[in-house]
Structures are given as C-alpha cells and as structure tokens.
Amino acid sequence: MGKPRVAIFDFACCEGCQLQIANMDEDLLKLIELVEPVEWREAMSEKSDRYDIAIVEGSITRPEDERRVRDIRRRAETLIALGSCATHGGLNKLRNRFPMEEVRRTVYGESASMPHLDSGRVKAVQEVVSVDLKIYGCPIEIAELSRMIRELVAGRRPLVPNYPVCVECKLRENVCRYEYDEICLGPVTRAGCNARCPSNGMWCFGCRGPVDRPNVNAARDVMERYRKTVEDLVGKLELFWTGEERING
C-alpha cells in the first residue's frame, strides 16, 4: 500500500494553521515520509484532484466555497477540519451577529458589491459537509496534529479530548487565572493545547470550542464570586463561540 495522498485546502482564514505545519521543521520531514502531499498552496505549486486525505482550513462563507468543499468531500476518503475557523467558524463567526450588508460595507467600502466579495454568513466546515476528524485550535497544535496524522495513517482512531483545558493546566501547575481575578474559559473549553495560554500568562480564550457538554450555567453562577458580570463572561465566549448554542447553557 502506498503512502496516503494528502491535500491541504484553505478557505476563509488567516492561513496560520497551515503556517504551523510549514513550521514543523524536522517533524515535517518525518511527516512526509508517512504521507505524500499532492496539493498545498502555501508550500508547493503542484495541484491534484486525487487524494485520500483532505485537510481543510478556514470557514465557508461564499456559495462557490460551498461547491468547492463539497467537491473536496467527494474526492477525499478522510476529511479533516483544521483549526478553529474550520471546526467552529472561529473568529469569522463574529460577523454573523450583524446584517451581512452592513458587514460587507464596513469591510470593503465601495467595492462591497463586487461579485467575488459576495461573502455571506460564516459556516464551519461541518455545516456544509461531513467531517471525519477535527483538529482544533487557533492556531492548531503541531504536537497534536503530528499525533493525529500518525494515528490516522496507522489505521487508528485519534484520541480527541472531551475534557476541559483545566486538566492540562493543572498538570502544568499553572496558577489558576481565576486567582488573578480573570475570566478564563478553561473550565468549559476542550483540551488538547496543553493549556497553552494559561501556561504563558493569559486566560483561555476558548479557541478550541466547548467540550461536548460544557457547564456554561456554572460559569454564569460564579461570575459574582470573582466580581464579574454575566455580560463579561458572554463577551469572552462570543470571541470563538459565536453561534454555539451552548453559550446559553
């Protein structure tokens, strides 16, 4: 059996997750011993319509993007959503809170009516096609990506944590951000980043999205304890969780 053919595609995003892959250094060489990259706009000029694994970065915002991602889905045996924009819609979804016409005018000014800027409501990849594996994060974690690709190629089902960031944060012995009177989204956010932000002096922004059953109501209830308001909490949640029904508990 030959190496699985892998293609990387980007949609609406900053391409930072692809950049993470490009920055893998030596591990990138090990990775391409396991898989054969056949299309990757950011790093190579070849293109291909034949691939086994499609890695899709970014969110889906235009009708032509929907057609393109459906085409990718048809060709790929395995489709991986890469990064928050792909897994949840990410920061892009913030705009879903406003009328699209207004968003377009604000961003593009007079050019707003040009056809290629016909950008509408933001969708996560799974809102358009089925997704086999999600690699979460803004940006993604290289260690996690490496592990998941290895497991996938070996025919295993990669372990995706369904527990909150607190688990990893405790193991790293960080001082809890709540001890600094900050709102940290760690208790409701899916782990896998090895508590990157709290380990570097910031609260968790929730970029990996919620665990399957986040107890957002508990978060609301404790705001007072930390001299914060529910509005403060919702403001933090909206950054990466816009459109998540679970914001409302």
Binding site: C166, V167, V211, N215, A218, A219
Partner: peptide
C-alpha cells in the same frame, strides 16, 4: 453538582 464543570481539577490536585 449543578455547579460542577466536570473539569477534574479537584482530582488532579
């Protein structure tokens, strides 16, 4: 338990 995040912090420490 209504206010439990199921975050395991109590276990881990």
């Amino acid at each position: 338990a209504r206010q439990c995040y199921s975050c395991g912090s109590c276990n881990l420490v």
